[in-house]
């Protein structure tokens, strides 16, 4: 198991290094940072001074070395907008996003597995048909539109829930509910398909011949095998939430990474944008490692 973790981490590390290189050169491709940071009417002297201070007149490789060194210390420089280290600003927002993503994905996972499994148990039955239609609608629903409608109905119309912000637990209800819909619809369908094939597998026949109860057959024998493809989709969906649910966070004024990134791009807060990219990338790499580990835990054939 330990060798497995080491191998997977190493593979992730390679892609992480790739990303570091890519981000550096892409950010240089977008133009001279001097033009980005200084006002349009800055004098040539100011520009030269700026380049000197930030080492932009050094050879590219030297700059790259410095950039990697800074990265290792998680030093992205200061946020221009907030006059604090960019990494602090990003981590603060990331904690919000992380909470939102974790709660949403936990709810989605449990609900989708239960609904999908029950639908698969009686294929073509009433429950299967209803959940089939609902999950299809959910999977294809435009979430920005639902978010706005939800605000209009529940916050403005009925006045049950706040429109935006994070003060009380009630503030979380709408963002989570809206973020829930799409991954739920998608994962229900994956669980159903995967469970149908697991339930028709030979080992389930053996379980029936052993005289096991249906509950045990579904949730012990079939589910664990059916989870393998499901985990991949869960990981993928969770990654897109970690990335910052940009639209939803913006609509609900939720102070997560998605909103931070949009704000920083609009205000040209370059250090914060870079820091957000690196932090979310790191989070997604960790997340993928977690998925790999879950795979290995569920399926002994992968461990060996």
């Amino acid at each position: 198991m330990l060798t497995f973790i080491r191998k997977r981490s190493l593979a992730s590390l390679v892609s992480l290094v790739g990303l570091v290189v890519l981000v550096f050169f892409l950010s240089r491709l977008t133009g001279d940072p001097t033009d980005l940071y200084l006002p349009l009417d800055a004098t040539d002297e100011m520009r030269a001074r700026f380049r000197e201070i930030y080492g932009l007149d050094d050879p590219l490789l030297v700059q790259f070395g410095r950039y990697v060194g800074d990265l290792l210390r998680l030093d992205f420089g200061d946020s221009i907008r907030k006059a604090r280290p960019a990494i602090e600003v990003v981590l603060e927002a990331f904690v919000w996003t992380l909470q939102l993503a974790l709660v949403t994905m936990a709810l989605v996972t449990v609900a989708a597995i239960v609904v999908g499994s029950l639908a698969a148990f009686r294929v073509g039955g009433f429950f299967d048909r209803v959940s089939g239609i609902l999950s299809l609608v959910a999977a294809s629903a435009p979430d920005f539109w639902i978010a706005i409608v939800a605000i209009v109905v529940f916050a403005v119309g009925l006045g049950w829930l706040p429109t935006s912000g994070t003060g009380t637990p009630w503030h979380w209800v709408l963002p989570i509910a809206v973020l829930f819909i799409r991954p739920f619809g998608l994962i229900v369908q994956v669980v159903r398909g995967s469970m149908i094939s697991a339930l028709s597998s030979p080992y389930v026949k053996t379980a029936r011949a052993k005289g096991l109860r249906p509950r045990k057959i579904i949730f012990v024998h079939a589910l664990r095998n059916a989870m393998l493809p499901v985990i991949t989709v869960i990981g993928d969906q969770a990654a897109s939430l970690l990335n910052g649910a940009v639209v939803i966070e913006t609509i609900f004024g939720f102070p997560g990474v998605g909103k931070l990134m949009i704000d920083s791009i609009l205000q040209r807060d370059f250090t914060v944008v870079l820091a957000s990219i690196m932090v979310t990338a790191l989070a997604i790499f960790l997340m993928n490692l977690l998925i790999d580990l879950a795979y290995a835990t569920l399926d002994p054939r992968i461990r060996h």
């Binding site: 080992y203 026949k205 024998h221 095998n225 569920l298 002994p300 054939r301």
Partner: peptide, 10 residues
């Protein structure tokens, strides 16, 4: 076919 009739994950 005992391989497919035994549950692979237990």
């Amino acid at each position: 076919d005992p391989l497919s009739h035994l549950n692979p994950v237990y």
